[in-house]
């Protein structure tokens, strides 16, 4: 059976791993390579590295850390942030990343998704979506440039529409980051994920809100997501991955051993 995936996410800023609350107030967590290695050894199924400054800054971002990660870890990893062209993606993949994830650049230029599909294959094209629940309107809205508070802006897209659009254009996986939940550890946005799951035929990864082991069980069982991404609970040692995997296995969730 295909196992559900546990995916620690490492937000990278200026070459170190950071974490903020609701995308704000970033604090330094540690160096990239030792953290990557630690998670691989702990049984993480995959890693995601978000270069959170990249999409919002115009400068060229140093990505040499991608190669350093590829040298030491033996589980798959995805790199996100600052990938605006087929050539950008090619460089990251050549350095040893297994997948690349695009978010703001896909919104600015949806053609990029298809170009990546045609060049590298659907399997390495991940589209990240930052979705905000607007309580006033009851709508799920797609946001852009969320790495930079000053530039964060709402787009014209409703989340489910964008989910369908990116699949049409060739996305191989979708990471849905529920912004209202990010970093607050109150659980994944099951309601939203169920709606997106119904519109998503490619693997769907839940992001934002993990705080306790029960949240992982809930998101796998209720929203039927393929993977659950989390950051602070892992970085702060609130949940240990081997313990979580064992518990989920006892709850009849398929986990890699």
């Amino acid at each position: 059976m295909l196992a559900r995936r546990l995916i620690p996410c490492l937000d990278v800023r200026d070459g170190v791993v950071v974490k903020g609350v609701k995308f704000r107030n970033h604090e330094i967590i540690g160096d990239i390579v030792p953290l990557a290695q630690k998670y691989a050894e702990a049984g993480a199924d995959e890693l995601v590295f978000y270069d959170i400054t990249a999409s919002s800054d115009k400068r060229v971002v140093d990505k040499s850390w991608v190669s350093k990660i590829a040298q030491v870890i033996d589980i798959p990893f995805c790199v996100a942030g600052g990938i605006k062209t087929v050539e950008d993606a090619g460089l990251i993949l050549e350095m040893g990343a297994d997948k690349i994830s695009i978010n703001s650049p896909a919104l600015a230029n949806p053609e990029l998704i298809t170009a990546l599909y045609n060049t590298y294959g659907q399997q390495c094209v991940v589209v990240g979506i930052d979705s905000f629940y607007n309580e006033a309107s009851g709508n799920y809205e797609v946001y852009q440039f969320t790495g930079d508070e000053k530039r964060t802006q709402k787009t014209q897209w409703q989340t489910v529409d964008w989910v369908q659009e990116v699949q049409k254009r060739g996305a191989g996986e979708i990471v849905l980051n529920c912004m209202n939940q990010d970093g607050v550890r109150k659980g994944y946005d099951i309601e939203q994920l169920i709606k997106v799951r119904a519109a998503c035929d490619v693997p769907l990864i839940a992001s934002g809100g993990a705080g306790e082991t029960q949240h992982f069980k809930d998101v796998f069982e209720q929203a039927d997501v393929d993977g659950a991404l989390a950051a602070s609970v892992f970085h702060k040692g609130i949940i240990e991955i081997p313990v979580l995997k064992q518990w989920l296995r006892e709850q009849q969730i398929t986990m890699r051993n």
């Binding site: 059976m1 295909l2 196992a3 559900r4 995936r5 199924d45 995959e46 659907q122 399997q123 191989g172 996986e173 998503c200 035929d201 490619v202 693997p203 769907l204 393929d226 993977g227 890699r256």
Partner: peptide, 11 residues
């Protein structure tokens, strides 16, 4: 009804 790509760890 399963998803494609087949992505992840399988036996």
């Amino acid at each position: 009804d399963l998803r494609l790509p087949h992505m992840g760890w399988n036996q």
